[in-house]
Nucleic acid binder design. Structure first.
Length: 819
RNA sequence: GCGGAUGUGGCGAAAUUGGCAAACGCACUAGACUUAGGAUCUAGCGGGCAACCUUGGGGGUUCAAGUCCCUUCAUCCGCACCA
């Protein structure tokens, strides 16, 4: 065989050394300057494909976690381009809000400067990874051109009654000096700074997210995503079906003094109610001050509760506290019997109605509380439990018999439940009701670095929205932007900015001095990429229609119950006001695993255990870094970072490079390689589509092994191989393609495999005897049982056919001989 | 407490519908080439001298189980007094 390499050597001199630094730099510069990966709006022939990676949080350097998500999406984007798609693969920076501001404060640099520098830094670092972003679409949430539209969306929310300001009890982070949403709190601590979260009364902007619960659940159903992530979202939204029941309230003299609504999912236990509990913040308390005989004691308890941090309340679940409300009784609408009323902080004011009917015989929490306060219990459903309640799971599972429940006594609980519901509806004391755990979204922060609210407060006109033409309302540059101890926004000190004229009546007015949370800008950014520089609209409707929903969205699983739910909410809203053409923002969401350090701890920007990707790139090159990290484990799994094994990757790349020395001038696929090559095409296509880079890399290695053993690769085979490998290792393959084929690899298309070359004509088939492996023989594919048995005999395998009871033969798979 | 996952060599990990467990790589061992080897190449590499045994443990279904069912243990993650 004539080695093509001899010809090549004549043409271009001997094969050069693999100098990854020069090669990678060359291609990275070329891709940027030639705009190789520009997405074309309304491409005349190619179908669109939208790959999105969560944009960078501008609070530090690129870290390993970013590579975990960006590299597979980059591979997918490159693969889809080869497949003939017009790919949109954009990037940007999430630069407003607490993370960026806290990082800026820490490094003692003004947030605006910190963010501008940070943006440049992460963009240039992602260029060093060879990521194929469309750089012309880069956005940054703290850029006025961008946040103009964040403010615009807020205005639409306000105009459509989805935003309201209300004084309420909210999570307040003692570290960040600002209110937080429920989504920002973990175990009573701030998710950003780890500070203790307490409850504070404050005037807060809320977005009516709760109203969207059912639509969000619908989004969850319609997204392609790992089931456990969907569960996490459904769990967060927390739909539960039950009844809302009204209890009348009486004073000591049995005079009606009001009523209280309670929510229950266990109406079947209505005859077992022995007390009612209100949340300490429940408005009835202040309404009934005159009737409450121990109001001092009650006030004291309420005060105590307010002082307790959420963390204390949660860590003290076993030890229930409460206070009886003397002088007020609740009347069970089914029995007309009166039961005492308590307040206790285990009842949450923001769930259901903030009041519960307590059934100590059938609810463990009620049981513990009743025991502590010596409240009697009445068992109404059969079941055995010593020193505990007979709970729902038990009695429903056994469909137990009703007790002490008037006309329902003796029925099974499932039948009784339905009849009790009917009775409640008939006597008019209750209706079926669905409750959601998810709350409205507290949407302001008392911090400097965020989108200013486009509203003013006017003594005459109240809350007045700015006119759209006056957007963006630019955040003023100030010197003193640190949060203060009172938790007021730093903007309140900027008098000439705060004081303004009412856009409606022209009178003196003042601006909202809180800013929007960091989640605001990220709740719609994927839409902006469709039309990132449009000064007149958040994005042109036709362009939004063209680019459609994100086909594959990659990013961290920690955002599943926050960012992704906010994204659903805003997209639903924007769809309803006709601003966007789809209700579902994302078709498929892939949650990436974490990178762990050698202690098994998460490696992230905030921890000190991080290994910088730049350090690895510098030492081994971008292609090697990309391959190594993804060879360590599957995309959705957590993987421990290690340098161990990176030599396997570098020697693989050396072998790839040395294919130049083995290429023949044959422009067809050789017989020896036809099956392995076709299988490789299939494997790589499927693996990239599923973001399984680890097994794809293994397949490339196996292929190379075979090529090395055979000592040659044809031109055609090498061409295919380089295209297949390009999405994972773009630099080396681009360079080799140019050297050998004198063409640009990005102009090529993805090789197709032929079904008929996936299976070889002869196969190895294991022979089992009584289910145990005995020997492996080689037969023709599709051989019949008789032919296989014949072959076994020919192979001198010691089986006496008269002893054989049964033969189980799975064609082309296995033969099991039962003796 | 509720929900979810994971458990496979010395290590990272593979394994369509149940069908040859350990692909691919690291580490390790031996050999070759070398002045040299942290380079390269070749071979070996779950355990056991063997028959055989082996996917956290125990049980089951099946001709056949890492995969399905029951049970149990361990680790990790999410939610957490949600009425």
């Amino acid at each position: 065989m004539i080695l093509f390499v001899e010809y090549l050597h004549e043409m271009r001199g001997v094969m050069k050394e693999y100098l990854f630094k020069d090669i990678e730099k060359k291609w990275q510069e070329k891709w940027v300057s030639e705009k190789t990966f520009k997405a074309i709006d309304f491409h005349p022939t190619k179908p669109k494909y939208y790959v999105l990676y969560e944009f960078f949080n501008i609070s530090g350097n690129l870290h390993m976690g970013h590579l975990k998500g960006t590299v597979p999406s980059d591979a997918l984007a490159r693969y889809k381009r080869f497949c003939g798609y017009n790919v949109l693969f954009p990037i940007g920076g999430d630069a407003f809000g607490l993370p960026a501001e806290n990082a800026a404060i820490k490094s003692k640099i003004k947030p605006s400067k910190f963010v501008a520098d940070g943006m440049q830094k992460v963009l240039s670092q992602s260029k060093m990874l060879g990521l194929s972003f469309d750089w012309d679409r880069t956005i940054c949430t703290s850029d006025p051109e961008y946040y103009k539209w964040t403010q615009w969306i807020f205005l639409q929310l306000l105009k459509n009654g989805k935003a309201y300001k209300k004084t309420g009890h909210v999570n307040f982070c003692t570290g960040c000096q600002t209110i937080l949403s429920n989504e920002d709190c973990r175990n009573g601590k701030c998710d950003r700074c780890g500070g203790i979260v307490i409850q504070k009364e404050r005037a807060v902007w809320f977005l009516k997210m709760k109203e969207y619960s059912e639509k969000l659940l619908n989004n969850v159903d319609n997204i392609e995503m790992a089931e456990h992530l969907k569960d996490a979202q459904r769990n967060w939204i927390g739909k539960s079906e039950g009844m809302q029941i009204t209890f009348n309230l009486q004073d000591e003299n049995e005079k009606n003094v009001g009523k209280v609504d309670i929510f229950t999912t266990c109406i079947e236990t209505i005859y077992g109610v022995t007390y009612v509990v209100l949340a300490p913040e429940h408005p009835l308390i202040s309404q009934l001050r005159e009737q409450i005989k121990n109001i001092k004691e009650v006030d004291k308890y309420i005060e105590q509760t307010a002082k307790r941090s959420e963390f204390d309340r949660l860590s003290d679940q076993k030890n229930k506290t409460g206070c009886v409300v003397e002088g007020v009784f609740a009347i069970n609408p089914f029995t007309q019997k009166k039961v005492p009323v308590y307040i206790a902080d285990f009842v949450l004011n923001n769930y259901g109605t903030g009041a519960v009917m307590a059934v100590p015989a059938h609810d463990q929490r009620d049981y513990e509380f009743a025991k502590k306060f010596n409240i009697p219990l009445v068992q109404v459903i059969q079941g055995i439990c010593e020193n505990c309640a007979v709970e729902k799971t038990q009695y429903l599972e056994n469909n137990s018999t009703m007790l002490n429940s008037e006309e329902f006594t003796g029925l099974d609980v499932k039948t009784a439940k339905n009849l009790i519901i009917q009775k409640a509806e008939k006597i008019g004391c209750g209706t079926k009701k669905i409750n959601y755990k998810m709350q409205d979204w507290p949407f302001n922060r008392q911090r400097y670095w965020g989108e200013p609210f486009p509203v003013v407060f006017c003594d005459k006109c109240g809350v007045v929205a700015l006119e759209e033409k006056d957007l963006p309302l630019v955040l003023p540059e100030v010197d003193d932007y640190l949060p203060n101890a009172e938790g007021d926004s730093p903007l309140s000190k900027v008098k000439d900015w705060v004081n303004c004229k009412c856009p409606k009546c022209g009178a003196d007015a003042y601006r909202e001095t809180d800013t929007m949370p960091n989640w605001a800008g990220s709740s719609w950014y994927w839409l902006r990429y469709a039309d990132p520089h449009n000064p007149n609209k958040l994005a042109d409707y036709e362009k939004l229609k063209y680019w459609g929903s994100v086909d594959c969205y990659t990013g961290g699983t920690e955002h599943i119950t926050r960012h992704v739910l906010y994204a659903f909410f805003w997209q639903n809203f924007l769809y309803e006001i006709g601003a966007v053409p789809n209700r579902n923002p994302f078709i498929r969401k892939m949650g990436s695993g974490l990178i762990l350090d050698d202690q098994g701890k998460k490696m992230s920007k905030s921890s000190t255990n991080g290994v910088s990707p730049l350090e690895v790139i510098d030492k081994y090159g971008a292609d090697a870094t990309r391959l190594h990290l993804h060879f360590l484990g599957a995309y959705e799994d957590n993987v421990p970072w290690t340098y161990q094994g990176i030599t396997g990757i570098t020697s693989f790349l050396e072998k790839v490079w040395s294919l130049q020395d083995m290429v023949t001038n044959d422009n067809s696929i050789s017989k020896n390689h036809i099956y392995v090559l076709n299988r490789l095409i299939k494997k790589i296509s499927e693996d990239i589509e599923a973001l399984r880079l680890n097994t794809a890399i293994a397949a490339f290695m196996s292929f190379i092994k075979q090529i090395k053993a055979d000592g040659y690769i044809t031109m055609k085979e090498l061409q295919y191989f380089l295209i297949l490998l390009n999405p994972l290792a773009p630099h080396i393959t681009s360079e080799m393609y140019e050297i050998i084929f004198n063409k640009q690899i990005t102009d090529e298309s993805w090789p197709k495999y032929d079904e008929k070359y996936l299976l070889e004509d002869t196969i190895n088939i294991p022979i089992q005897i009584n289910g145990k492996l005995y020997k492996v023989i080689t037969i023709n594919r599709g051989a019949s049982q008789d032919e296989v048995v014949e072959e076994i005999k020919n192979n001198n395998i010691d089986i006496k056919m008269e002893e054989v009871k049964k033969i189980i033969y799975v064609k082309d798979k296995i033969i099991n001989i039962i003796k």
